[in-house]
Design a protein around this nucleic acid. Structure first.
Length: 649
RNA sequence: CGGGAUGUAGCGCAGCUUGGUAGCGCACUUCGUUCGGGACGAAGGGGCCGCAGGUUCGAAUCCUGUCAUCCCGACCA
């Protein structure tokens, strides 16, 4: 337990009342008491630091392994983690950046309940979709038998509050946010904090008198988000996104680029277009014209195609190009009200279905009548038999498959919902299944074969496709971790929950809404994914648990110990967030741990201590310099101050 | 939910085929020697072998069931 030599100059007469590892009042750092992050002066011997030499078997990606090994997190249950003291400091720092930028836009911080009544969710129409089947909402009954859900998000609660509190256009716009835990019963929790079942999120909800005001706040959030990620030291890209179960119109995701990302991003090299693959659009390759064109007035000529059930087999056997074919997918959509709707989807043979686009299209056409879309799954032969249908020519289906095949269905809707992608409907003449086993039709055409189905974008854009904004550009793939998502919700929730205000003309109308999320705990792990090396984490200064670690190489040397203590105190007094490694470990152990936990700057007090020299090492670059301890602040502070601001935008 | 794998000390693993009541490395405790990149020696502590049945004189080991965790897929603001 060290004494505090040479400290009287800044701590006055107070020092003896405080154990050396506790914060005590000091002359120059009055505002440290208002800043919990700065007030926690720390010694490694008091930090409950437990680092692991081996990678835990449960971790797969670098950031997950490192957070476990470096003593930041521990798993409590699948997808549920304890944030240990170092991690909590990181999360607080991220939260502080988020809070500052949100406050800067005029948003108001709140805290909403996590336990929410089912009734609210029933009113918005999301209860069934979020709890039934593969829904992600944890839900329970209280002692009175009332149903409650653990909030996966807070649109319902906030909108109900808005309905209660916001009455006049004079109160608008308002933007409310909170930083707190969220619960989602993920089908497959993964990668530590990346996809947890309980996690920390910043969510904000804005309310507006008109769409223009919503767009303004949406743009302000876009700017705030870019600043937040830059300040946190993260390279992030904004991409067009699907708005998914949240609904609404415009939506943009912020992706931290990293190899371990769960999302595929498609972007043009000129930087003008970037989108999540779920949403991405592109120009499909030009089709190769079918040599003999339309045959039999568009009915097509039958062709014997034994066992050629795939586009690949068909093309190989007869020399067709995949772009000359139309493939037909048979799917079944299930809805909240129990309705089951068979879907017949036509795509050009070389194209892939984008399930998200399809789900959106089906929702738009059926949800008003049947409630939320629960899922869409391929319709199997067994399911058709079970339903009481006759044989279906799987592998040989054409777009002219009649509704007659659905006759006798016990529960399914009796007619297909027929949709097609433009790549299919744009073909003048094509090859397709003949609706009979071992038969295809060559030279079929829309109109002649059957009416052209409703046509809309259903295909998955692929890397290498030409861009719509500039066909000379091609889409390139990269992976990203979604750390933020902003939506223009419009009036979906306000109408469902009757959140209205009185406009300038004295007429009641529904509020316009936006919502804006940042995965705080996910962001912290994404930062590790983006900033690490073979030795451990390399935190950006702005979110590092500590900015500087002072390592006393040999605690048994009194010169080193006293200079280490003095350096530690000086850094503290200069407002630096500093950690002192005072453990009775060998120097190598302390260096390894310092690298592993990733403190951006290391000050080594070692051999040179007797001569008043210390070594300053930058974690990310490994750059070292030896300098007199008296010059340390001058050498360190300018860089530190720059780094605290994060990346340039 | 489908496919695959794994559960043995805090962490990483061996032992299981061929049953005989458990072992290695790291971590932890004590002592000594070390002391600038995860030291060395000595002596210790810690395990209802995931759980429940069954087979057997005897089960970590064989059988059945069950639970949990991880991976792939489906799925997923």
């Amino acid at each position: 337990m060290g004494s505090r030599p040479d400290h009287s100059s800044c701590s006055g007469g107070q020092q003896q009342q405080w154990p050396p590892w506790r914060l005590r009042p000091s002359g120059g750092g009055g505002d440290r008491f208002r800043d919990p992050l700065k007030s926690l002066a720390m010694r490694v011997s008091r930090l409950m630091l437990v680092t692991l030499r081996d990678d835990p078997a449960e971790a797969e990606i670098p950031s997950h392994k490192l957070l476990l090994r470096a003593g930041y997190i521990r798993r409590v249950a699948s997808g549920i983690y304890a944030y240990l003291p170092l991690m909590w400091r990181v999360l607080q720092k991220v939260s502080r950046v988020v809070r500052e930028e949100m406050d800067h836009t005029g948003a108001l911080e709140t805290l909403l309940p996590q336990l929410q009544p089912a009734e609210l969710w029933q009113r918005s129409g999301r209860w069934a979709g979020y709890t039934a089947g593969e829904g992600i909402m944890f839900h329970l009954k209280d002692r009175q038998g009332r149903e409650l859900g653990l909030g996966p998000t807070h649109e319902e609660v906030i909108t109900a509050l808005a309905a209660d509190l916001l009455r006049s256009y004079r109160q608008l716009p308002v933007n409310l946010y909170q930083i707190q835990g969220k619960f989602r019963d993920e089908i497959r929790p993964r990668f530590g904090l990346m996809r947890g079942r309980e996690f920390i999120m910043k969510d904000a909800y804005s309310f507006h008198a008109d769409e223009a005001s919503l767009r303004e706040t949406y743009a302000a959030m876009d700017g705030a988000y870019r600043r937040i990620f830059a300040r946190c030291g993260l390279r992030a890209v904004a991409v067009e996104a699907d708005s998914g179960a949240i609904g609404g119109s415009a939506s943009q995701e912020f992706m931290v680029t990293a190899a371990a990302g769960e999302d595929l991003i498609l972007a043009s090299a000129d930087g003008r277009y970037a989108a999540n693959q779920e949403r991405a659009v592109s120009q499909a390759p030009e089709p190769v014209a079918l040599p003999d064109g339309v045959r039999a007035a568009g009915q097509g000529a039958p062709l014997s195609t034994p066992k050629q059930t795939s586009i690949e087999a068909l093309c190989e056997a007869h020399g067709f190009h995949p772009t000359q074919t139309v493939k037909v997918l048979l799917l079944l959509a299930r809805f909240e009200d129990g309705n089951q709707q068979p879907l017949l989807i036509s795509l050009r043979g070389d194209q892939q279905l984008n399930a998200v686009k399809l789900a959106n299209a089906v929702t738009a056409r059926c949800s008003a009548a049947h409630g939320a879309l629960l899922d869409i799954a391929p319709l199997s032969a067994e399911a058709a038999t079970k339903e009481g249908l006759g044989p279906i020519p799987f592998g040989f289906m054409g777009p002219h498959l009649g509704d007659a095949v659905l006759e006798g269905a016990r529960n399914w809707a009796p007619t297909f919902l027929r949709l097609a992608d433009p790549t299919a409907t744009d073909l003048d003449a094509f090859v397709c299944g003949g609706n009979a086993v071992d038969t295809h039709l060559v030279g079929a055409a829309w109109g002649g074969l059957c009416p052209s189905p409703e046509s809309l974008d259903l295909r998955a854009a692929q890397p290498g496709d030409r861009c719509q904004h500039d066909p000379s550009q091609r889409l390139e793939a990269s992976r990203g971790i979604e750390v933020g998502h902003i939506f223009q919700l419009g009036r979906k929730y306000s109408e469902a929950l009757e959140a209205r205000f009185t406009n300038e003309a004295g007429v009641e109308e529904a509020l316009w809404m936006g919502c804006y999320g940042i995965g705080v705990s996910r962001l912290a792990q994404a930062a590790v994914e983006q900033h690490h090396d073979d030795h451990g984490i390399c935190w950006p200064v702005s979110i590092a648990p500590f900015e500087v670690i002072v390592v006393v190489a040999n605690g048994a040397e009194s010169d080193q110990l006293s200079l280490g203590e003095r350096t530690y105190n000086e850094l503290q007094d200069a407002g630096v967030d500093v950690l002192l490694d005072d453990r009775a470990e060998r120097a190598g152990v302390k260096f390894k741990d310092a690298d592993l936990i990733g403190i951006p700057w290391r000050v080594v007090v070692g051999r040179g201590a007797a001569a008043g020299l210390v070594e300053l090492v930058e974690r990310s670059t490994g750059h070292k310099q030896e300098l007199p301890a008296s010059n340390l602040l001058a050498a360190l502070l300018p860089s530190l101050q720059t780094q605290r601001r994060g990346l340039e935008i």
